[in-house]
Amino acid sequence: MIKYEIPETLKEHENIIKRTFRYSNEIIFKCEETKPWESKLGGCPYLKNIEEYPVDEEGEPMLFLAQINLSDLEKLDDLPQKGLLQFFVVNDDMFGLESPIVVKYIEDYEENEAQLIKENPYEDNEGYKQSLPFSNNGKMYFETREMPISSSLELFETLFKDELSEEEYEKLSRDCYSCNSRVGGYPYFVQHDCLGFDDEDFLLLQLDIDDECGIMFGDSGNCVFSIPKDALKNKDFSKVIYDWQCC
């Protein structure tokens, strides 16, 4: 696990910084083939039949961004301990930013490839492939990390602006630059915290710039899927909020 070490210049504020600590599972992408139930970027989601594939309000297939096998994750007690999470957005030139999203939770799944669809039924469609915010599908690997609150959140300023000197505040802001792809922990907003992410929210998924699979939303951007913790406790994934921002 990656531990966060508080800089010596901020040791006198150790207690208030430590109170913000969360665990995240940092994602490492590899351009590898995946089984239907594995954690993945793009490719084919876990599907028993084509009718299960989400479509938008016009009946058009949505973009499959990612699937998380929850058994791969560690130290994220707010999440269910098993099952699959799948993330779909509308296929348009804004990566579905202003349209309803679908986050599917599949609590029970089988590991029998003979009973499952092995290829994304829409991936050979040029209109589908060109709309994806990544150039290669990939398998996800995870590394647990201890992290302080992201300096891109409004809550960061609320907590520290009046507690730290200007120099200390700038130092902690640089230290808490929370980019990279992850599940759990805190999100990074390229422009501003339009979600008002706080203690009652959980980061379901952040997809950030990645060279291995060519991930990029717009011009050097990323995406965030957030859910209120009370909705997560009830496994109500209709409450997920999606946003992406770029430079």
Score class of each variant (00 low, 15 high):
90 V>G: 01
227 I>W: 00
141 Y>L: 06
186 Y>K: 07
175 D>H: 10
230 D>E: 04
208 D>Y: 04
192 H>F: 15
210 D>C: 10
116 L>W: 05
210 D>N: 12
83 G>L: 02
74 E>N: 11
214 G>Q: 05
47 L>G: 07
8 E>G: 14
131 S>D: 02
165 S>V: 03
129 K>H: 12
109 Y>R: 08
212 E>G: 06
69 N>C: 09
201 D>N: 13
152 S>T: 05
6 I>P: 06
109 Y>I: 09
145 R>D: 03
240 V>P: 01
8 E>D: 15
58 E>W: 11
5 E>Y: 14
48 K>R: 15
144 T>M: 03
242 Y>W: 09
46 Y>L: 07
237 F>K: 01
234 N>Q: 12
122 Y>F: 10
47 L>A: 11
77 D>P: 00
110 E>D: 13
10 L>F: 11
10 L>W: 11
162 D>P: 03
7 P>T: 12
208 D>L: 04
2 I>F: 14
194 C>N: 15
8 E>C: 14
3 K>A: 15
17 I>G: 03
232 L>T: 00
83 G>W: 00
98 E>P: 08
52 E>V: 09
69 N>L: 03
162 D>K: 12
11 K>R: 12
63 L>N: 08
89 V>D: 00
18 K>D: 11
172 L>K: 04
211 D>N: 14
66 A>I: 07
39 S>T: 06
221 G>W: 05
112 N>D: 10
25 N>D: 04
103 V>F: 09
13 H>V: 07
205 L>I: 05
69 N>W: 00
226 S>T: 12
3 K>G: 09
203 L>K: 01
156 F>P: 01
233 K>A: 08
211 D>T: 14
25 N>R: 03
143 E>N: 11
55 V>S: 12
127 G>P: 02
108 D>N: 13
10 L>Y: 12
6 I>Q: 13
246 C>S: 10
36 P>S: 13
56 D>T: 03
187 P>H: 03
224 V>W: 00
183 V>K: 03
145 R>K: 15
47 L>T: 13
184 G>E: 02
63 L>A: 08
31 C>L: 09
57 E>G: 14
80 P>A: 07
205 L>T: 02
133 P>T: 08
107 E>F: 06
